[in-house]
Design a protein around this nucleic acid. Structure first.
Length: 412
DNA sequence: TGTGCCGGGCG
DNA sequence: CGCCCGGCACA
């Protein structure tokens, strides 16, 4: 069981919360303005967030104090351990944020990373077997890179301004509870950038970047068992405006996945600009056993655009991160619904996901000269917003669905 | 019967 | 246009 937690969702989510802004000054700037008055049922998230944010807050505080040379005597040994861990976490998260000053920052980076790192030093953490990644870290790497720092800051990517709005929306969608109705999105691509020093490789799929990191930097050779998620620590997700970047990156797979974060399955890309198929293919290819462990959410995080951002998948499950003295506990629930497009969801869905998609594409391409015959769209077999979210969550539907038009989010 | 969405109406 | 919805074709 290797879950890979998707930090981004959480992070984004948290980012949205005004109350916690101060925690992520850099990453959140944009989010802040999105104080959506929308009150959707985000109770779960709230809960999650609160606990997490509290933790972070605490962590931060500790870190600060540590910098100030607070006499250790005041803290119990337990606390000290925690401090180390938390400090590591905070530092990592902080150091990372600047790089990606945009929302795409992987929210959990800090968490996952710290767990790993923290695990080694403080026995307390490692002992709680909630997370079973093999070893807190592959110590095999002599040169464990420090969390990506400034190396990337210089990267040309990042078109912050345009993306922000979208990201926010997406984040909301992802979470599933935030009705961000009627917001129009631009076509976005999600890319994953390697944060390893001097690398900066950018791939379009989480699996790809993970593989890259694993093989190129971590020196692992494909053993799926080793994918303990460490790679997550070394890459970041970023959203790019396809319009702007498409050309340059066109070679890469159409973005789709976004990591832990959040964008619903999407593939609602404007047909004209790109098709889903390529995406699916690419991913399929990249999907090595190793990459399997990659956060499924990533794949879900597509953006939907034309009508609104979509929350592809939600991780309705709640993950709680509670540093209790010496151990972290994480509870996870399997997501209730998930989109699909890619055979990711464990529960339903025919494994045919990609196959179907491809077929569909095929039909479209070979479609007879339009015009005369009233061709009614074959009718996508995939699940649409209505099915996915149900009538009760109509506000979560893409606008097209709301208007009884062809679904823009789950195109097939 | 439920779903997807075309075609068309309204502001 | 944005937003709805009647109604039809499918499943």
């Amino acid at each position: 069981m290797t879950f890979t937690f998707q930090p981004e969702d959480l992070k984004r989510d948290s980012g949205k919360k005004m109350s916690h802004q101060h925690l992520f000054p850099l990453a959140m700037e944009e989010d802040v303005r999105t104080a959506d008055a929308k009150t959707a049922p985000r109770i779960l998230d709230h809960d999650k967030e609160n606990t997490r944010s509290v933790c972070l807050l605490e962590q931060k505080r500790k870190v600060v104090s540590s910098n100030i040379d607070v006499p250790p005597a005041r803290k119990s040994s337990e606390e000290l351990d925690m401090d180390k861990v938390t400090a590591a976490m905070v530092l990592t998260s902080l150091s990372t944020s600047p790089l990606v000053r945009s929302p795409p920052v992987r929210p959990n980076e800090g968490l996952s990373g710290s767990w790993k790192e923290g695990g080694a030093p403080s026995s307390s953490c490692s002992s709680s077997g909630y997370w079973s990644w093999s070893a807190p870290s592959d110590q095999s790497n002599p040169s464990t890179p420090s969390p990506p720092l400034s190396a990337d800051s210089s990267k040309p990517f990042r078109s912050p301004a345009p993306d922000d709005g979208i990201d926010e929306a997406e984040a909301g969608n992802l979470l599933f509870d935030e009705p961000i109705p009627r917001k129009r999105k631009n076509s976005m691509k999600v890319m994953f950038k390697c944060l390893w020093k001097n690398c900066g490789k950018v791939l379009s799929t989480a699996a790809g970047i993970q593989k890259h990191i694993r093989t190129a930097h971590l020196g692992r050779v494909g053993d799926s068992d080793c994918s303990d998620g460490e790679e997550d620590f070394y890459y970041t997700e970023m959203k790019l405006n396809t319009d702007a970047v498409a050309d340059g990156l066109s070679g890469l797979a159409p973005g789709s996945p976004s990591q832990s974060l959040a964008s619903p399955p999407t593939f609602p890309i404007p047909d004209s600009s790109r098709t889903d198929t390529p995406c699916a293919k690419t991913e399929a290819k990249l999907m090595t056993p190793l990459s399997r462990s990659a956060p499924t959410t990533l794949y879900l995080v597509h953006t939907d655009h034309a009508y609104q951002a979509t929350p592809p998948v939600t991780i309705p499950g709640s993950a709680k991160f509670t540093p209790n003295g010496s151990s972290f506990s994480i509870s996870w629930q399997s997501p209730p619904v998930t989109f699909t497009g890619i055979p990711v969801s464990p529960t339903h869905h025919h494994p045919l996901g990609t196959g179907e998609q491809r077929q569909h594409t095929h039909t479209v391409l070979s479609s007879p000269p339009r015009g005369t015959v009233s061709l009614r769209k074959p009718r996508g077999e995939g699940r649409k917003c209505r099915k996915v979210y149900g009538m009760e969550h109509r506000d979560l539907w893409c606008t097209a669905c709301r208007w009884k038009k062809a679904c823009q989010r789950f195109t097939d």
